[in-house]
C-alpha cells in the first residue's frame, strides 16, 4: 500500500516536473529562436552595418528622454496615490493608471500627434519621447504605489515618532527603502520603451527604412525595423533582421540589468 502510493507519488512528481520544464522551454524557445534566427538572417543578407549603431544610439536617446518624461510623472502620481490622496481619489487615479497601462501604445502616438505635435512640428524627437513617456508613466505610477504600500508600517511610524514631517518621511525614509526596486522597474520600463515602435508611428516623422540615407528626424531601431521589414528589397530586410538582433540583445540586457538592480537589497 505504502509502496504503491509511494511510486505513484514519485510518478506524479516526475510528470509535473517535466511539464514545468516543458512549459519553460516553450517560453524560452521563441526568444532564443528569434535571437538566433535574426542573427542568421542578418548575416546571410549582409544586414549589419555601421548605420545600425546610429539607430541604436537614436533609440537610446529617445528612450532616455522618454524616461525623463515618464518616470518623474509616474513617480509623483504613485506617491500621491500611496501617501496623500483620500481613498476615493486614490481609487480613481489607480483605475485611470490601469486603463492607461492597458491601452494600445499606438494611442499615445495618436494623442501626441494630434495635440503637442501640431505645435512642435510632426517629426521630432520631443513628441516621440513624449508619446513613449505617456506609455511609461502609468506603469511607473502603479509600481511606485505598490512598492510604497509594501513599506512596513513600523518603519513609517519609527520615522514619524522621531518628529519628522510626513513629507520627509516619504522622501527620506519610504522612498529610499524601495529605491533598488524602483530602479529595477525603471530599467525594465526603459527596456520596454526601447522596443516599442507603435507610439512612434505618428510622431517620428516620415517612416523610413534603415537603409534610408537620412535616418529621419528621430532614428529608432524599432521603427526602422518595422519600415525595413515591410520593404521588398532583400538588402533592406537584412538590415531589419540585424536591427531585430541588436534590439533583442539590448532589451534582454536592459531587462537583466533591471532585474539585478531590483533584486539587490539596499
Amino acid at each position: 500500500m505504502t509502496h504503491t502510493s509511494g511510486t505513484r507519488r514519485a510518478r506524479t512528481d516526475r510528470l509535473v516536473s517535466w511539464a514545468g520544464a516543458l512549459a519553460f522551454a516553450g517560453l524560452l524557445a521563441p526568444v532564443l529562436g528569434l535571437v538566433l534566427w535574426s542573427l542568421l538572417e542578418a548575416l546571410a543578407l549582409g544586414g549589419f552595418e555601421l548605420r545600425l549603431f546610429a539607430a541604436l544610439v537614436g533609440s537610446l536617446e529617445l528612450c532616455a528622454l522618454a524616461l525623463l518624461f515618464g518616470l518623474p510623472t509616474g513617480l509623483l502620481a504613485g506617491l500621491h496615490v500611496a501617501e496623500l490622496a483620500g481613498p476615493r481619489v486614490a481609487r480613481a487615479v489607480r483605475m485611470i493608471a490601469d486603463v492607461l497601462a492597458g491601452a494600445p501604445p499606438l494611442l499615445f502616438g495618436v494623442l501626441v500627434h494630434s495635440t503637442v505635435a501640431s505645435f512642435t512640428g510632426a517629426s521630432s524627437l520631443l513628441p516621440s519621447a513624449l508619446a513613449l513617456g505617456l506609455f511609461i508613466a502609468p506603469a511607473m505610477a502603479r509600481a511606485t504605489e505598490e512598492l510604497l504600500s509594501l513599506v512596513p508600517e513600523g518603519l513609517r511610524e519609527a520615522a514619524l515618532g522621531l518628529g519628522l514631517a510626513p513629507w520627509r518621511v516619504v522622501l527620506f525614509v519610504c522612498l529610499p527603502s524601495v529605491r533598488s526596486s524602483l530602479g529595477g522597474v525603471a530599467l525594465a520600463l526603459g527596456a520596454r520603451a526601447l522596443g516599442e515602435a507603435a507610439p512612434l508611428l505618428f510622431t517620428a516623422g516620415a517612416v523610413r527604412g534603415l537603409g534610408a540615407a537620412v535616418f529621419g528626424d528621430s532614428p529608432s531601431l524599432a521603427l526602422g525595423l518595422y519600415a525595413s521589414m515591410s520593404s521588398a528589397d532583400p538588402a533592406e530586410q537584412g538590415k531589419a533582421w540585424a536591427a531585430a538582433f541588436v534590439l533583442l540583445v539590448t532589451v534582454v540586457a536592459a531587462s537583466a540589468l533591471g532585474r539585478s538592480v531590483g533584486e539587490r537589497r539596499a
Binding site: 518603519l155 511610524e157 519609527a158 514619524l160 515618532g161 529610499p176 527603502s177 539596499a266
Partner: peptide, 16 residues
C-alpha cells in the same frame, strides 16, 4: 513628537 519621544515594541532601526 520631538518633545515626547516614542520607543516601539519592536526594535525598528532605520534599515538603510
Amino acid at each position: 513628537r520631538r518633545r515626547i519621544g516614542l520607543v516601539f515594541q519592536r526594535p525598528n532601526p532605520l534599515p538603510m
